[in-house]
Design a protein around this nucleic acid. Sequence first.
DNA 1: GACCTCACG
DNA 2: ACGTACGTGAGGTCC
Length: 889
Amino acid sequence: MGENMTENKKLLLIDGNSVSFRAFFAMHNVLDKFISGDGVHTNALYAFNNMLEIILKEEKPTHALVAFDAGKTTFRTKMYSEYKGGRAKTPPELLEQLPLIKELLNLRGIKTYELKDFEADDIIGTLSKEGEKDDMDVTVITGDRDLTQLTTKKVTVRVNVKGVTETESYTPEHVKEKLGIDPNQIIDMKGLMGDNSDHYPGVEKVGEKTAVKLLNQYDSMDGIYDNIDDMKKSKLKEHLINDKDQAFLSRKLATIDTDAPIEVKMGDLEYQGDNQEQLIRFYQKMSFNSFLERMDVDTDTNVSDLAEIEYSLLDEKALKQIVSDTGVQTVIVESLGENYHTTPIIGLAVESGDKYYATDDVGILENQDFKDWLADKSKEKYVFDYKKTIALLDRYGCKIDGVTFDMLLVAYLLDTNDSKQDIGLVAQNYGHNLPTEDEFYGKGAKKAIPTDTDKLLNYLAQQAQVIVSLHDKMMAELKDNDQDSLYDEIELPLTIVLSDMELQGVTVQASKLKEMENSFAQRLSDIEKSIYAAAGEEFNINSPKQLGVILFEKLKLPVIKKTKTGYSTAVDVLEKLKDKSPVVQQILDYRQISKINSTYAVGLQKFIQPDNKIHTIYQQTLTQTGRLSSIEPNLQNIPIRIDEGRQIRKAFVPQHENWEMFSADYSQVELRVLAHISGDEHMQEAFKEDYDIHAHTAMRIFGLNSTDDVTPNMRRQAKATNFGIVYGISDYGLSQNIGITRKEAAKFIESYFEQYPGVKKYMDDIVKFARENGYVETIMHRRRYLPDIHAKNFAQRNFAQRTAMNTPIQGSAADIIKVAMINMQKKLKQENLQANLLLQVHDEMIFEAPKSEIETLEKIVPSVMDSAVKLDVPLKVESAHGKTWYEAK
DNA sequence: GACCTCACG
DNA sequence: ACGTACGTGAGGTCC
């Protein structure tokens, strides 16, 4: 180890422009929320400071500097006038924040610097070299990958990967691993391949791959051109010769100047630390409450630093005040851990008339006045996670009603990324200093209720306080987004429907599952034996790693696809190897049965409660599209496609004798939604006339005159294309799915768009909408923000575009069934039926009902479902019933 | 805890 | 040249 006599001097260099840029777009979706008193946007400033806090803590620099670009023209534009040409202008909302960012840095004791005719990169390059000469450790923070060329043993370059706080650290080893070349070869690589975003060319047809290959062979661009005469004749050689001048110019442009004429000296860069007084005033001016709070409690967010709040014990005396209060009150019912259907309540808190009450004695729930107050619909209440609160109280014999504000639900509707089902996280997103569950109770094995009861009760009181103080702001945002009816009329009423379903539970016969488990076990052991025989040895078939060795090394089957860690043994790969060896089919069989056995036959038994029922949890605030998800267990993926798996459904039965299972599903709801929102005439006609949609599509894209001429294979391909359209199609994806070439797939798509021009227009328009607004929305104004729609990275951006196309379709379908569920529950009550809604699987509802009610359900369920919303095309519902879920289809 | 695989819409 | 279908949850392996 080298001795460092300068005592760990540490230089921090930040690329001010690129980090500000990232900061701005990372918080672009809250642009309008972050405005200072005098009307200046502050989102980038806020995110920048966030990053700064984290970086300063991690890096503990002794010296620091933030470099900025000085202007549009530099020595590079003089060399090549097109340099960075065609770049989008910096948004004015960001531009106005740059002086604020510099002011902030000044108050935080960090020097800023810019130099005429040079870019921030050159300042950083020059100083990092100087720091290294002084034997300092240097860290560079930037949003720009180009700076990785500065990486050395002493210089680490951290590039923002997601937002501004997550970075990827480049050391020389990491560069080598990632790019396959050394840091000092990066400029040669850029010279050869050019740079689209900086707008300079390299050598024609040379991309990253080719450049790296050449550099591995010839070391540098000079090496390539020294040996060019010896290269054998090829297009590549021709391009290299033709574009030689261009390549050397590009390399020059890509090279960061490490010898810029800067006027600052290392001594000027000493990190000063915060100017407390002025910084506080600055934060106040910017309304940065969270940063202000952090200053008061110092930097440590330990539980002991929890701001104290005054509360009294929630006892009989307090209840007198609470039940007589006519104003809005906030209720906290706390439980720790995973599944709220089984975990105990560990504490309660109520905010009432600006006072806080809390207790860890659940005996209070036996007080009749309290019970009545909780169940009283006319007593308005606020909570966090209404569904959980209902379920917890239910086990203690209490009902709760009158809830008008569920902070979790509102946070989710405002931004699907925001809700992490943790009040601390939501609070922190809104600038409040409340610990998360993990922060307060500890993580993993260390998780525990604090021994100091006062601490716990204080935390609960604080939760109530956060809910009270954020209510107005969040509800106002909801209204601004035009999402108030989505909340009032759909999500909040749905919470009650879902809690009914969860608490009702579905009856599952353990004996039936046990029986299947035994028969699967027998079959598995048979197949196992014959696989071992074919392989010539015993191994763990469930291990993709071991299986890979057997298939591709021992049996020498051709490798079709690789994963990050080894050979892929996924179904699509094995399907292609089926005729090469009989063992492949046996492995497929083994996999299938093993999956059904472990996940369902064995797995589901563990969830059957003493009441012979399974009580799943529907996550209402999780998916990015507005669908529900089901956990512990997941009852939305019970097998159906293959009969062996489908047998599992025979264990799902009604809870009473002489009852039946009844299921009803929407037919092609997503395509109908697409027909509606795209307004495409041909697709709308197909649904209005109730044609077989896939046959109709086949007829159109294959240019036939009648659906009678459509072959089953044509229909299959058209069906896949319809699915692809809904997912945000790509020719590659479609080609993989139906086993045709990419070219053929591209043809399909082209003719699809010719036949359904409205669909094409929708796809173009929705992506444009996402680019302009930063989000997309459903028919009920459910929102999904798509920050990656502006990503520089091709794959990320494309993904965001497909998401923009798919989300309004999938999400609107989710809206529709949610409305139907609410109406259905109402109808069952109105009609005084005993039938119970038990499950929802995205486009279907599953009920149990007395046999005598089945006929009624057959009329009312489809009618409630297809009238849930009014679209430009009809909705279609199919239903079935039988003794078990298996038969109800 | 990451990764692979596979169940559903 | 890039690297892909959209949305989920869970079990098993391996580190």
